[in-house]
């Protein structure tokens, strides 16, 4: 793009047009244009608005136009090729040139179109949270589990315009957490640490809204778990799936005191910064 404009601005410095050259040089580029609709000839048009197109340009300007065309054509081909390789399955070319493709695509052209593919999700994954609350009288109590995904589901029910806060926020935060943690719930890289802080902040927000701490209470620790239930197979199908939910229970997390939030985040990240180096391009 910038190149295209450079081509344009280069022309500005070009020499003045020599009209007597024009008819002679039109010929080589627009060699007998087959579209008769194109008024390919007289530059000496009587109309006040001069006609457009390469045909109206002298040779020097035609070279500028050809240059612009070449640059744009190459940029378009490269871009489409890069996007194709980015969305294609891993293959010989992406294995050899993965770095070049990632450099071109990230961050602004990142995309993922595996929409409900290869298989649609066949489980309802509910994210639930409970809190340990320090009460006003100095004791502690543990709340019951809040099913935050069920709250989201109820908010979406009968809703023509579900909000991203209901449909994406918690769901994607959990996906992000799962993708950046191992089976023992240990974070992998910077993104793992970020996802923990993010998930914790979301559940805190939701506990606040539910007034889980009660009057005078303070949420000291939170615990998150996911409850995964198979979608019941269609009734015309003879498939059998378990209808028992499975749980993934995360450890209790301390909630940083007001104002200490960012320090906590940095601590979590400090230990894993090195691991992130390796992860960099692989996101």
């Amino acid at each position: 793009m910038a190149d295209a404009y450079d081509a344009g601005s280069a022309a500005r410095h070009g020499p003045e047009e020599e009209p007597q050259d024009a008819p002679a040089v039109i010929v080589p580029v627009v060699v007998s244009s087959p579209t008769p609709a194109t008024p390919a000839t007289p530059p000496a048009s009587p109309s006040p608005e001069p006609r457009t197109g390469v045909a109206a340009l002298s040779l020097r300007y035609q070279i500028g136009a050809a240059l612009a065309l070449a640059v744009v054509a190459i940029a378009v081909c490269v871009h489409i090729g890069m996007v194709f390789l980015h969305v294609a399955p891993p293959n010989t070319v992406t294995k050899q040139h993965g770095k070049a493709i990632d450099d071109w695509i990230y961050p602004e052209f990142e995309q993922n179109w595996k929409l409900f593919a290869p298989n649609p999700l066949q489980q309802n994954i509910a994210v639930q949270v409970r809190a340990q609350v320090g009460t006003a009288d100095g004791g502690t109590r543990t709340t019951g589990w809040y099913d935050l995904s069920a709250q989201d589901g109820r908010a979406i029910d009968g809703n023509l315009l579900p909000s991203h806060t209901q449909q994406n926020e918690l769901r994607r935060a959990w996906d992000f957490f799962v993708a950046t943690h191992d089976a023992q719930n240990r974070p992998v890289g910077l993104r793992g640490a970020l996802s923990e802080t993010y998930l914790r902040r979301i559940v805190q927000l939701r506990l606040d809204r539910a007034n889980a701490a009660g009057d005078g209470g303070v949420v000291e620790r939170v615990q998150v778990r996911s409850r995964t239930t198979n979608v019941r197979p269609p009734k015309w199908s003879d498939e059998q799936v378990s209808d028992k939910p499975t749980y993934r229970v995360l450890p209790w997390w301390w909630v940083p005191e007001e104002g200490a939030g960012s320090a906590d985040g940095n601590d979590a990240v400090g230990g894993t910064a090195a691991a992130d180096e390796a992860e960099g391009g692989a996101r």
Partner: peptide, 11 residues
Amino acid sequence: TAQPRILLDVV
């Protein structure tokens, strides 16, 4: 002249 303007239009 009209030439630079036409070139920009073409670009």
